[in-house]
Computed example of a mutant assay.
Amino acid sequence: MGVKKKQRPRQNLAAGRPPTVQRPKSITRKATKSLIGKIHVLEKRRTQAVAKGDVTEEAAIAAEIEALGGLQKYQEASLQGQREDRGGDSSRVLLDWLKDSGISPSVLGDDGRLRMLEVGALSIDNACSKSGLFEIQRIDLNSQGEGILQQDFMQRPLPKDDSERFDIVSLSLVLNFVPEPRGRGEMLRRTLEFLQASRSYPSPSLDPLFPSLFLVLPAPCVLNSRYLDEERLEAIMSALGYSKVQSKTTQRLVYYLWKLDTSKAVGRQEFAKKELRAGGSRNNFAVVLKQGG
């Protein structure tokens, strides 16, 4: 009887890769939605515990968030949502609007690229990054790689002059992650600090669109909230000096391009949390705007 030769284990290159470069497993749309919803609720409860000074409750909720995977898992779920079979990259909508307005790299010229601040950036390979229209600075609370600065937008140093400001700020699925209504209002107000006060654009076609804010929200935040509807959102944005120049609604998302009138003084109107639509099936998403932020 012959002696069996010891078989060498098969080499698997993927098994030898460090965890940081392994691609996250795909999760279903239902699981993605569930995870994001759970983390949103927990973040809101955690913020409320902080406001009450309840350290024990805050720690317990933080542990729950960590058990779900924390911000890392939230971002993985968001990246899943950017896949083509999940609706794709939200910045494609912005590019379609610009294309319809006749804006292209040739119109901008070699030195005329638009400066974008992308808040909550998940990738350096989205449609805007590949368009040739933008010079982009990307920030996120938990950077997913090179080219994305780990930074909280609310803590980002304010610009000293227009050389540190932008033609457009992108808040794509960012505002809805802020746990408190007043914090959302403060974030919208803070965008004003980062937009160009004046710039001579290379083409008249750019003037009606910039400086601007690209805002993307889950559709239920506007379409099915007790405290926010389209009219209310427009009133809040108008009080900040913004006017709506483009919008699009899909089953899952609402997209807006808001143009800032830098010559218009910011209004002192306040917007409290006020019920606009009753009904047990409504969600509680709201934006509260106070004078002075």
Rank of each mutant, 00 (worst) to 15 (best):
G70P: 05
Y255E: 14
W97F: 02
R29Y: 09
V119L: 02
P24L: 10
K52P: 13
P18I: 12
P19G: 05
Q269G: 05
A239V: 01
E146W: 09
L228D: 04
L188I: 08
G145Y: 07
I148N: 06
A51T: 03
P105S: 10
S143L: 01
I236L: 03
I168P: 10
R23C: 13
K73L: 10
K44E: 13
R115I: 09
I124Q: 12
A51R: 15
S243V: 15
V169H: 06
F210S: 03
P208I: 07
G37R: 15
E43R: 07
F153A: 01
R83N: 05
V169L: 04
A62W: 11
A272Y: 12
F285R: 00
L195M: 06
R182I: 11
N224I: 04
L141M: 09
L215A: 05
D152C: 07
S34K: 14
L141F: 04
K259Y: 03
K73S: 11
E231S: 12
I36E: 12
G145N: 08
R45S: 11
K259E: 13
T262M: 00
G292R: 01
E118W: 00
L206K: 02
L79Y: 14
S101C: 14
I103P: 04
F177N: 08
L253H: 07
I124N: 13
D96T: 11
K99R: 09
P159K: 01
G183Y: 06
L13V: 15
L117C: 01
T32D: 08
A286G: 08
G109F: 03
S91E: 08
P202T: 01
Q196P: 03
G267H: 10
V222P: 10
G16L: 11
I36Q: 11
Y74F: 15
A15N: 08
L71I: 10
M187S: 07
L95G: 02
R8N: 12
D167P: 01
E180A: 09
P202F: 11
Q291N: 02
E234I: 04
